[in-house]
Simulated assay, not measured.
Amino acid sequence: MGDWPQGYARHVFDKLDSTLSEAARMAPTLSGPAWILAGEQSAARGRRGRAWATPPGNFAGTLIMPRTGSPANAALRSFVASLALREAFVEVTGQTDVFALKWPNDVLLKGGKVAGILLETVGEHLLIGIGVNLRHAPTPEQVEAGAVTPVSVFSVTGVHVQPEAFLDALASAFARFEDQFTTYGFSPIRTAWLSHAARIGEVVTARTMRDETVGVFEDVDEAGNLILKTAKGRVAITAADVYF
């Protein structure tokens, strides 16, 4: 596994209500970035307040970072985290071609959802919550209709990865991509992300609470927006759930 990155603190708990909640409580006391890992979570959450199951053996972590720049700039950390997740998966499994990135914040393993990312801000800090199905995956009945089927690393690859070992790989990868992002901006991150994007060139549906847009996934622009080619022309999607 990669060496633990310099300047990043590490806090490991047997059980928490939520690593995101613990991060929010801890943030005011921190002066630099810190990772929080929990063996179990009793009140985990995903995007839009959805429940996120974290049975023992899965990965539940949050990175706390001082928030710099605009909110739009902070939101681009989801792409940094996605790339770091993919690199960590490749490192721990030894498999390279089975992982893909789903806009805006999921990682797929042979087409099934294996990891999700949730960004929140608390004061002057950015929280990057990450859940990974290392050992177990929710059943199809536990996810909303039309969502990508959940899978686990173990069920698909047969590789058993301990959460703390995965954190080592993830933290090291994130630090490298974060250095690239802060040094060179979003452009190289965007290029790398697109090279691993799921369903690029195919028809997808982007759905918000108010409407949905169907079109060909053409690109992700320099602001991180999903670009769809529709019957009415190219449309930039700022935030949505994407369905295949």
Rank of each mutant, 00 (worst) to 15 (best):
Q6V: 04
Q6E: 15
G7S: 10
R10L: 09
H11Y: 04
L16G: 06
S21C: 00
A24Y: 10
R25P: 00
R25N: 03
A27E: 08
P28A: 09
S31Y: 12
S31V: 03
G32L: 06
A34C: 15
W35E: 14
W35P: 00
A43Q: 14
A44F: 03
A44P: 11
R47H: 07
R48I: 02
G49Y: 11
T54Y: 00
P56A: 14
G57L: 00
N58W: 13
F59D: 02
G61V: 05
T62I: 00
L63N: 02
I64F: 10
M65C: 05
M65K: 09
P66Q: 00
G69L: 07
G69T: 12
A72H: 09
V80D: 02
A84K: 04
E87R: 15
V90P: 02
V92E: 11
T93E: 12
G94W: 14
T96N: 09
T96K: 15
T96M: 09
V98D: 03
F99Y: 13
K102V: 01
N105F: 11
D106Q: 09
V107C: 08
V107S: 05
K113A: 04
K113E: 08
V114N: 09
A115R: 04
G116F: 03
I117G: 05
E120R: 05
T121P: 01
G123S: 08
L126R: 03
L126N: 08
L127G: 10
I128A: 12
G129S: 12
G129N: 08
L134V: 00
A137G: 04
A137W: 06
P138L: 09
T139P: 00
E141F: 12
V143C: 03
A147M: 11
P150M: 11
P150K: 14
F154L: 14
S155Y: 12
V156L: 11
T157Q: 12
T157E: 13
V161A: 05
V161R: 07
V161W: 08
V161H: 06
P163A: 00
E164N: 08
A165V: 05
A165C: 03
L167Y: 10
A169F: 02
A169E: 15
L170D: 10
A171L: 07
F177K: 05
Q180R: 06
T182I: 05
T183M: 08
Y184T: 08
G185F: 00
S187E: 15
S187N: 05
T191D: 14
L194P: 13
L194Y: 13
A197F: 06
I200L: 13
V203R: 09
V204C: 03
A206L: 08
R207T: 11
R207H: 11
T208V: 04
M209F: 13
R210Q: 15
E212Q: 14
E212R: 14
V214M: 12
V216Y: 10
V220Y: 04
D221I: 02
A223Y: 14
G224W: 06
N225R: 14
L226D: 10
I227N: 10
L228A: 10
L228S: 11
G233N: 09
A236S: 13
I237H: 13
T238D: 07
A240G: 01
A240R: 08
A240N: 11
V242G: 02
F244R: 15
